[in-house]
Nucleic acid binder design. Structure first.
Length: 463
RNA sequence: CGGAGCGUAGCUCAGCCUGGUAGAGCGCCAGCUUUGGGAGCUGGAUGUCGGAGGUUCGAAUCCUCUCGCUCCGACCA
């Protein structure tokens, strides 16, 4: 393993109070706890799992349960940030519900017996039935019924980004199919079907934007919606060559841009219709006759499910007697929907969709660091000075920067920076410095550009 | 949950069939040389051979049990 233990005083040179620094991450690679692996671990079969282990993002703790190391944690948090922003834009409100839940609520909804061994059941010291939450419909419905009083409290959409546990029979594919996983789950409450559908549409649009911001092509596909029927359940499938299931869709869906400048209060139905009018289906539900008609417009690809939204009406609100006063003063049972995004799974999905032989290619929105400074000759006064100066300026300007100040050979540094997928790499060596230039490389492209130090600085700090 | 396989150094793995007391490459530590795509030489550290029991003079190796992990299939954010 190639790492040194990070000191808790890494940032001791910074002012502790009234810091002028913007919210950004910055780190010297010599201090980063980054245990990269040169060889492929035997346990990992798919590329995202291999790369996450090799890039020092995660380590397995038990089957389907992972430790997230600093690099992986940064990516996970960047993804969560995008999810959170888009949920907030769409009008959802963030809460945090317990991971360990009381079994009583599940007995009320009837799912305590229905759920099966996927649910991890625990007894506390008083022999009470507890469980580690695989989902939170019961808890959120309980929150609602205890605290919402009137139709005037609606519409309401509560979400959380939290860890869940499902005791899968066969966890695999690293974080793509773990037992413990980080998920965004939102729950909407509305007075009638039309308004409930609007809540559903808000999430639909938010999802389109969320995945696009992560650099993903995510296609909404009609999914089983249970007893409610209709078109009120969609899976969002990320297209990736190594995806777990085959998907079929109209090629127009691949070029469709995510909606911008959305007014979430306005009627969003036209956007939903635009996206759902084109054919898209997973392997299980595909229709050979429809596909034959598409001809050259048919795209066959592979995909990973990263989101699922559905409307389920009064299933939980009725079972758990979550009633509020309606406009006429009579009790009203709200209609509900729930909306999931697999946040930890997305880390794997993004890698599946974006990598090459050298390693991960992070889209800028989720990269653990945006810019890498690679000092090719640590100990050379000119190189050191140029690097530390640039590093300090990036830090001050709020640019997420990783400075590779390790006393390693050039090849090692290039390999590690490529492996962990730093999107922009500024290579600073004695030859360039003598000419007053550095080399700028874009991860994933073979192009290299020689520019001045000032130009490199401006490229990432200019508005 | 059915079927298959694997646990030996931080990682990848050899040794097991045919029992004789622990190995290689990479990584790690020290030194010298090197220095623009995972360097070279020299020296060094590292293992309860997953665990328990058994057979044997002797077990990484054979037997039994057990724990963990992985793969294929059925199931899922």
């Amino acid at each position: 393993m190639r790492y040194r233990c990070a000191s808790p005083n890494v940032r001791h040179h910074l002012p502790l109070l009234s810091t002028p620094l913007k919210d950004c991450s910055f780190m010297r690679l010599s201090r980063l706890f980054l245990p990269t692996l040169k060889e492929n671990p035997a346990e990992a079969v798919i590329v995202s799992h291999r790369l996450m282990l090799r890039a020092g993002m995660i380590r397995q703790h038990a089957a389907g349960i992972y430790n997230w190391l600093p690099l992986g944690t940064r990516v996970l948090q960047n993804i969560a940030k995008i999810v959170r922003e888009e949920q907030n834009f769409a009008g959802a409100q963030e809460i945090i519900m317990p991971t360990v839940q009381s079994g009583e609520l599940w007995k009320e909804s009837g799912r305590y017996d229905d759920y099966g061994p996927e649910m991890l059941r625990i007894k506390d010291r008083h022999e009470r039935d507890m469980l580690y939450g695989p989902t939170h419909e019961e808890v959120v419905t309980d929150i609602f019924r205890n605290n919402a009083k009137s139709y005037r409290n609606l519409p309401l959409n509560l979400y959380q980004i939290h860890w869940k546990f499902r005791d899968e029979v066969r966890p695999r594919f690293g974080v793509m199919r773990g037992r413990e996983f980080l998920m965004k789950d939102a729950y909407s409450f509305d007075v009638d079907f039309e308004r409930s559908k609007h809540s559903y549409n808000q999430m639909f649009v938010a999802y389109l934007r969320t995945f696009a911001r992560m650099g993903l092509k995510a296609i909404p596909m009609r999914a089983d919606s249970g007893p409610i029927g209709g078109d009120m359940s969609h899976e969002f499938i990320v297209l990736a060559e190594t995806g777990e299931s085959a998907v079929f869709c109209h090629k127009g869906l691949l070029e469709k841009p995510a909606p911008e400048n959305v007014d979430y209060q306005s009627n969003l139905q036209a956007i939903i219709d635009d996206w759902t009018s084109l054919y898209a289906a997973t392997e299980e539900k595909h229709d050979a006759a429809m596909e034959a008609k598409l001809g050259a417009d048919l795209v066959k690809a592979r995909g990973i499910e990263v989101g699922h939204i559905f409307h389920f009406g009064t299933k939980y609100s009725a079972a758990m007697k979550a009633q509020i006063a309606g406009p006429d003063g009579q009790p009203l049972t709200p209609l509900m929907g729930s909306y999931g995004i697999g946040v930890s799974r997305l880390v794997g999905a993004i890698i599946e969709a974006s990598h090459d032989d050298a390693g991960i290619i992070w889209p800028e929105g989720v990269a653990p660091f945006r810019v890498g400074i690679i000092n090719l000759k640590v100990g050379d006064a000119a190189c050191d000075a140029a690097c530390t100066d640039l590093y300090a300026k990036f830090t001050k300007a709020g640019v997420d920067v990783l400075y590779d100040d390790r006393d390693e050979r050039a090849g090692v540094k290039f390999a590690d920076n490529d492996l962990i997928g730093v999107p922009w790499q500024i290579v600073i060596g004695p030859k360039g410095i003598a000419k007053g230039v550095v080399e700028l490389k874009r991860r994933g492209s073979t192009e290299k550009e020689e520019i001045s130090l000032d130009a490199a600085l401006n490229k990432f700090t200019a508005k």
